[in-house]
Amino acid sequence: MDNKQLVLSPSPHLRGSNSIKRDMYIVILALLFPTAGAVYFFGLYVLLMLAVSIISAVLVEYVAKMMRRRPFHMDGSAIVTAILFVLVMPPRSPLWIVGVGSLISIAVTKEMFGGLGHNIFNPALAARAFVTVSFAGALSRWISPVHSLLADGVATATPLSESFSYTLSKPEMYKALFLGNVGGSAGETSALLILIGGLILIAFRLIKWQVPVFYIGTVALLSWILGRDPLFQILAGGLFLGAFFMATDYVTTPLTTKGKIIFAVGAGALVVLIRFYGTMPEGVCYSILLMNAFTPLIDRHVRPKVFGAVKKAKKEAA
């Protein structure tokens, strides 16, 4: 037996196959479905937005890491943020605004707070909130699906806006909403494609089914109680995209399943509040951002049951 130098590492000496990179690339795979839908419904311009978004996001992350003197890892997280940002933007957003979005999502929301794992708010949604408020005029143009790669598109009202009206029968309208054949943000319109992506995430055990079910369920239940059409409320707008891809973000949502359910119910209630009683037509983005702010509080109070936990009273008596 040769006496070579042996490695003395602490236990466990066995590691599983999980990695941040693997997680992120599975999310990207899942995002391909709503992304393909966005291109199908709203044309090649969406691809241009994606290219600008991804390139600028990776670049901003690289520069930010250099400035913070931290190692840069191509772990895919910037790409996920960049794709999500495009999917929640109007399909004809000016490209320079997409670039500004990367600056806000990556530099301000993520890196300024310490990088991946330390941010409080969902980067893509924080950037969307920022550009929507800052460049309201440039982002007010919504188009109906063009079904053509190059057509410019006709201005339309999105389903949740007050001026929205439809000529179709109710079942046909539900079908249009489910398939995504309506106006809206680039990647939010097709519940079907988002659902496929979401099921991929659930199948790979990346997200908990409880989050979308409780989030969407809360919106449906409260809409029904308040006398609105629950099916319309859950299919219209960005609820599905938010429920499967944003409210399930690891970094900005609670750690425990119980905490995640509280988060989802809270976000669902906020969506209803904003949609029915607020001044904005849509509330998914703000509902998640607001609940992001509550995440540390939820994590402080919602903890798993410790094995063999001794009852408090008993402990004090002892």
């Binding site: 999980n18 941040i20 997680d23 890892h73 772990d75 310490g114 990088g115 991946l116 794992g117 330390h118 690891y250 970094v251 750690l255 425990t256 903890r303 798993p304 049951k305 410790v306 094995f307 063999g308 936990a309």
Partner: peptide, 18 residues
Amino acid sequence: YDCIRCGRCIEACPMGLM
């Protein structure tokens, strides 16, 4: 790397810890 708060350690812990 830095923790991404995925919560897998909480789910794996047989003693109910975080």
